[in-house]
Design a protein around this nucleic acid. Structure first.
Lengths: 132, 132
DNA sequence: AGCGCCGATACCGTTGAAGTAACCGGGGTC
DNA sequence: GACCCCGGTTACTTCAACGGTATCGGCGCT
């Protein structure tokens, strides 16, 4: 309650390394919506975030693609976009209940990956070595 | 135990309409691996299937794409391909334990879709109508 | 001889998602 | 007046997945 001008509780800053670049979706065999939708949901699970806040952990995604992803998610009712008429401009993205309902699924996918993804990658590597 | 020449228990025939063409993956916001991987896993969950057996419910997918999907899944250790030296040729695809481990996730995705997909589609439609 | 079955493969075209680079407006700051 | 920040947008290019059509080889059937 120190520097929260509009009364909204700000969640802790996002870790810029919260996504392993070695596991982009090439290895992760799951996708929710577009390529970055799942990661955006993860970024928003603790509260509303601004555009540039989302870009910190998602620095691999260009503003164009992030903006496309966000507009698609807004269209699908997964998040809401709130623009404050301030200066500098401020825009906040917040998960809707529908968007939150995907969190358990993302958890399940993450759990699967932790336990089984090494097996999948090992099978892939083995296959490449026996038939190069 | 009537017409099972090689002793393998054959599961019931697949329903050619087991996949709703109105819900291809355009609406289903989940993907496991490639576009058809999830459906192949569903087709194989009751036991091994032959190539043409898989084509019955997946008649939208051409043999080329199905064969590509199957080879990718074999490479990733999700299924095994067994070729019998008979005539006419016979090839069977069977889920591995790793492939089976994805079934709970597919169940979870299906459950989500049943309860929440209408909301998502309604939001999409509403958005299209207010901003055409 | 000709046709069909099974399980593919080869060749080629289309599509759409993703990426690159540049730019915008409007106010604050130096 | 020059520059920066925020939250994007626009135009252009790239690339892999996807799809369509044609074909194959070996055998059996008629």
């Amino acid at each position: 309650m120190t520097d929260s001008p509009s009364g909204t509780r700000r969640p802790a800053p996002l870790d810029p390394d919260m996504f392993d670049p070695l596991c982009p979706s090439s290895a992760m065999p799951f996708r929710v919506g577009d390529k970055w939708t799942g990661m955006v949901i993860r970024c928003l699970e603790d509260g509303p975030r601004r555009f540039t806040e989302l870009r910190a952990p998602l620095r691999a995604v260009t503003p164009k693609v992030l903006s496309e992803t966000l507009r698609a998610m807004e269209r699908d009712g997964l998040l809401t976009r709130t623009s404050y008429d301030e200066n500098p401009p401020r825009v906040e993205y917040t998960l809707t209940p529908l968007g939150r309902s995907l969190l358990p699924l993302l958890d399940a996918a993450r759990t699967w990956s932790r336990t089984h993804l090494p097996l999948l990658l090992a099978a892939r590597t083995a296959h490449e070595q026996e038939a190069p």
